[in-house]
Computed example of a mutant assay.
Amino acid sequence: MKKPAPELEPDANPASVARSIVLRQLTNSPKSRHQLAQKLAERNVPADVAESVLDRFVEIELIDDAEFAQLWVRSRAQNRSLARGALKRELAEKGIAPELAEEALAQISDEDERDSAAELVRRKLRGSMNLADRAERDKYTRRWVAMLARKGYNPSAAFAVVGSLIDEQLESETPQ
């Protein structure tokens, strides 16, 4: 069970408490303004104080949602192989404005996304799989397309990537 957020000390300056919370949060990793506002609300910082503290942090560029979105997309696309669909959802959850999200997502091309999907499926391909067997091929197609869907890839692109990799695998196994 989650313990309740601590109340602000009655004699504590809410602005300095808010500043220290924001600084502590930003020390761990970049955060969006929305995430920081949520953290301040959890700690019972008055909304007007939180707003002014966050405005000041934006002003001095310690909070920058556009830069956060760019970093988030780059990192999650490289490290987690997420597609634009999943990244767009994550950015929305973090309170990033749709136009900033679109700018950040523009750094991933269709070709990058296709290459990433193909790499994910290649890691799953094994020589011991009998993809010439229709039932076996269908089973792995379903698994791999589902894996790609969980990572935000669009179904038609996922089926195309999986199909072409299975075809490549079958061609490489066929004696010349």
Rank of each mutant, 00 (worst) to 15 (best):
L26Q: 02
E168L: 00
D55W: 14
W144C: 04
R150L: 09
A37Y: 11
F57E: 06
Q70H: 14
L120M: 11
A149Y: 01
V49M: 12
A18H: 05
E113N: 02
A117N: 02
A66P: 12
N79H: 11
D48Y: 13
E173I: 08
A104P: 08
K139N: 14
A160T: 09
S20M: 06
S20A: 08
L82E: 01
R150G: 14
A146G: 00
R24G: 10
H34R: 09
Q78T: 15
Q107Y: 03
M1I: 15
E119P: 14
S172V: 02
F57Y: 09
V161Y: 08
A47F: 12
K94P: 10
K94A: 14
R137G: 01
R114Y: 13
A83K: 01
E102G: 12
L91Y: 02
L170E: 13
V49N: 14
P98V: 12
Q25R: 05
S164H: 12
D133K: 09
A47E: 05
Q70R: 14
Q25F: 13
R122V: 02
A47N: 06
N28M: 04
Q169K: 14
E99T: 13
R143T: 10
F68P: 07
P10I: 01
R150Y: 11
P6L: 06
E59H: 04
K31N: 05
S156I: 01
A18K: 02
G152H: 03
E173T: 10
L8R: 01
R80I: 15
L120Q: 09
V121H: 09
E119I: 13
S81E: 05
H34I: 12
L54Q: 13
L26S: 07
I21D: 08
V145Y: 00
I96L: 15
R122H: 08
A135T: 04
A118I: 07
K2V: 15
D115P: 13
N79T: 10
P155K: 00
P14V: 01
V161G: 08
L40H: 01
H34G: 08
S164W: 07
K88T: 03
L62Q: 14
Q176P: 07
E136Y: 03
